[in-house]
């Protein structure tokens, strides 16, 4: 037999076949969870979607007939995420600007970048513990304890590293020639940053920030003892300083209830949360891929 021919029984070829199959098997297992989770949420959650769901308050568990809606939780998630964004985006973008534009590779920026990575690794529940100690237990905010505002602050701690990182990295990608061009015609540093570099990096920063917000919207651990939960409509500004519901905490609370009606509400909330988060993710992915393509041409 020709020695150049492929020999099936050669241990090398058997081994290669085996490991290739193993790798394919790993990939199959890896995509199963997403398919299963999304399918169940579409089926079980999708079945619960009614107009009332969006308008009603949830009924307290026990009344098994009708669980009501998730309006307060939905609004609460929007409010808390907005508060977190209002805090984290300016701080993060500003901090990122300093790292990328002013301090470049100096020891200070090394230290802060290290800190950013460490902060990103702090367990999300610790952010809740911290805000609990700082704001909730001290009643420092106009005497209120659990509040939507406290929840927003806890979430902002989780968003901060993401925002700083994307800003820092987005700005680092802007070619230096562009900066020199602007500085070279006598523009000040801040004009250069605000008018030239930041707009150039806007797309990548915005994508990163939007993904960060989507991630925060699903966070639960920092909220369960900062914002707590509420069954009641959010009607006015002062409600910020009271307990506030959110989709995430609603899912947590109602999943653990022994009543079917509440469980269904948890599935419905998951449906809304997951669909929104996946939509944001898929769009920003397409957007990023598109941006990259146009850049290359």
């Amino acid at each position: 037999m020709n020695s150049l021919y492929y020999q099936k029984k050669l241990s090398r070829n058997v081994g290669d076949k085996f490991f290739t199959s193993l790798s394919v098997f790993c990939a199959l297992i890896a995509i199963l969870p997403l398919i299963f989770v999304v399918t169940y949420i579409l089926i079980k959650g999708g079945a619960q979607i009614t107009p009332e769901l969006f308008t009603l308050e949830p009924n307290p568990p026990g009344d098994d007939l009708d669980a009501g809606g998730i309006n307060p939780a939905l609004i609460g998630t929007l409010v808390i995420t907005t508060i977190a964004s209002i805090i984290a985006i300016p701080v993060g973008v500003g901090g990122g600007i300093y790292l990328a534009e002013y301090s470049k590779g100096g020891p200070f920026s090394k230290f802060i970048r290290f800190g950013v990575n460490v902060l990103a690794g702090v367990p999300s529940i610790i952010a809740g513990v911290f805000i609990y100690a700082l704001i909730v237990s001290t009643k420092i905010l106009f005497g209120s304890m659990y509040s939507g505002f406290a929840g927003g602050m806890a979430l902002s701690i989780l968003m901060l590293p993401t925002v700083i990182k994307t800003t820092d990295e987005g700005l680092k990608l802007v070619p230096n020639e562009l900066r020199y061009a602007s500085l070279g015609i006598g523009a000040s540093m801040y004009t250069t940053i605000l008018k030239i570099t930041l707009p150039t990096a806007f797309r990548s920063i915005a994508t990163g920030v939007v993904l960060g917000i989507a991630r925060a919207a699903g966070e639960t651990a920092p909220l369960i003892f900062t914002a707590l939960f509420s069954y009641y409509y959010i009607v006015g500004f002062e409600d910020l300083f009271y307990e506030m519901g959110s989709l995430a905490v609603l899912i947590y609370n109602f999943a653990l209830e022994p009543y079917d009606a509440q469980n269904k509400l948890a599935w419905a909330a998951s449906f809304i949360l997951v669909i929104s988060i996946l939509t944001v993710n898929i769009f920003s992915r397409i957007f990023a891929a598109f941006t990259e393509k146009t850049k290359r041409v």
Binding site: N2, S3, L4, Y5, Y6, R12
Partner: peptide
């Protein structure tokens, strides 16, 4: 060497 039966590693 581009015969289908040939093993490129070989």
């Amino acid at each position: 060497i581009y015969d289908k039966r040939v093993d490129p590693v070989e």
